[in-house]
Simulated assay, not measured.
Amino acid sequence: MQLPPPSDGAFRWIMKCGWKGLCPRCGQGQMFKSWLEVSDKCDSCDLDYRFAAPDDGPAFFSLCIAAFPLAFFVVWIQVTFDPPWWVHLLTSLPVMVLGTLLPLRPIKGWLVASQFVNRAQQHGTQASWARLNGTDPAKNDFDQ
């Protein structure tokens, strides 16, 4: 079982696991069971992914990182060339859709791997989550 290296290598580990969709504990199993759906457990080390709660983070980062600059590109096309509407339909729409959808999976992978490596958990919720999931409240969710 491969564990993430301490401090200086943790960022690299998060980026590698998130980009490739690998388990953040062992680096072997798949994190996703479909394009954006996180697996229930790692098929290699049995890491339970119930801790993973990236919520709207991937969409937010995709919009901020990709859509914002792409919108400037679309406006530049309009101002510079003043094309008819169908040109935007054939160029701008696909660029915007692909530019915002393609980064979703790696961003979600990075967020899940980051949660695991950094043991990110909302403060004061461990006992509630243990009751809800039927796990041992004395153990950390990341170690079960």
Rank of each mutant, 00 (worst) to 15 (best):
D43N: 06
P58S: 06
A71G: 14
L132H: 13
C45P: 02
G124W: 03
P94K: 03
S44R: 11
P84I: 12
D48M: 03
N140Q: 04
D48W: 09
C17T: 15
G18K: 01
N133M: 10
W110Q: 02
Q126R: 09
I14Y: 09
F72G: 14
G109C: 05
Q126H: 12
R119T: 08
Q78A: 05
K33V: 06
A138G: 13
D8M: 00
L98Q: 07
Y49G: 06
D136Q: 07
W110H: 06
A52P: 02
A113G: 15
S7P: 06
L102S: 06
P54V: 04
R119L: 01
A130E: 10
I77F: 11
V75M: 09
R50M: 02
V117S: 11
G109W: 06
I65Y: 13
P6Q: 08
P5S: 11
V117G: 07
C45A: 10
H123M: 01
F72W: 04
I77N: 10
P4N: 10
P54G: 09
A127F: 11
Y49I: 01
R25A: 08
F11D: 07
V38C: 08
W110I: 06
H88F: 03
L102K: 09
L22D: 09
P54K: 12
S44K: 10
P83N: 13
C17V: 13
V95L: 15
D136S: 00
G21V: 12
K16R: 14
A52V: 03
T80C: 11
L70S: 13
S92I: 02
G18D: 11
K108I: 03
S128Q: 05
T125W: 05
F32L: 01
W110L: 13
E37N: 11
F32W: 06
L3Y: 13
D40L: 00
L63E: 00
F81C: 04
D82Q: 15
R131L: 10
Q30S: 10
P103C: 08
S39D: 10
C45Q: 08
G57P: 08
W19K: 10
F72Y: 12
W76I: 00
W129I: 04
I77T: 12
Q30P: 00
L70I: 15
D8R: 13
A66T: 07
F68A: 15
K16H: 06
G9V: 00
P4G: 04
H123K: 13
K139W: 07
P103I: 01
D48F: 02
V38I: 15
D40T: 04
Q121G: 13
